[in-house]
């Protein structure tokens, strides 16, 4: 059904659509980044497409695998016509592309997330700042060249917790086992004689 959307897209935009495929039944079009916004607006406003339901926007980093490096991926669907489309644009570094937040209001946060995680800059975005990470964070964590375990703490660690080396002393660590609940103490009266 949504093959028609792909057809229509190639008819209208011609060379701006670089390639299309329908792997696993997901209709996909790769377009040139310079006409990204224009094509998105067309998808929403054209009567035959009517892609009014924003679904998802993300990016994929193909470091050392593909040139250009990034691929911005957009998923949209139509509430009335029930078809879906995946729109992709390939970006080199520095990655910049037009914002879609004026077309679908939902793109706002998704673009912020994409900026946060991949460092893709969305030109014209009203409020482009980090959303999941804190403002002090440096780098883009989901890029393939960001080491997964590299933390950037905001507070100083307690020296005794960080610098602590095994083996531990006996008095350290959590005392396992109860020391008062299980203990039976003979009751002693004031004169020092036990009950028994």
């Amino acid at each position: 059904m949504s093959k028609r959307v792909l057809q229509r897209l190639t008819e209208v935009f011609g060379a701006a659509v670089i390639e299309t495929h329908s792997q696993h039944g997901d209709d996909t079009a790769v377009v040139v980044p310079s006409r990204w916004k224009e094509i998105a607006a067309f998808l929403r406003d054209d009567e035959k497409c009517a892609m009014n339901h924003f679904i998802d926007l993300t990016a994929v980093d193909y470091l050392n695998r593909r040139e250009p490096r990034f691929e911005v991926v957009l998923h949209v669907r139509s509430i009335e016509k029930l078809h879906r489309l995946r729109l992709k644009a390939r970006l080199g570094e520095p990655a910049t592309i037009d914002t879609l937040s004026g077309i679908w209001a939902g793109a706002d946060w998704f673009e912020r997330e994409c900026f946060d995680m991949f460092g893709v800059e969305f030109v014209g975005h009203p409020d482009l700042r980090r959303i999941l990470m804190y403002p002090e964070f440096v780098g883009s964590p989901l890029r393939k060249d960001y080491a997964a375990q590299h933390t950037q703490p905001l507070v100083e660690y307690r020296p005794e917790a960080v610098g602590k080396l095994p083996p531990f002393d006996e008095h350290e660590g959590m005392p396992f086992g109860r020391q008062t609940h299980d203990r039976v103490e003979p009751r002693v009266n004031a004169l020092g004689f036990s009950d028994e």
């Binding site: 924003f54 679904i55 998802d56 993300t58 994929v60 980093d61 991926v73 998923h75 209001a105 939902g106 706002d108 946060w109 998704f110 997330e113």
Partner: peptide, 15 residues
């Protein structure tokens, strides 16, 4: 997996 992207429903809701 090379990349798994989750599309969380309440991310869209929260905005």
């Amino acid at each position: 997996p090379y990349r798994i992207r989750i599309r969380p429903p309440c991310f869209a809701t929260m905005q």
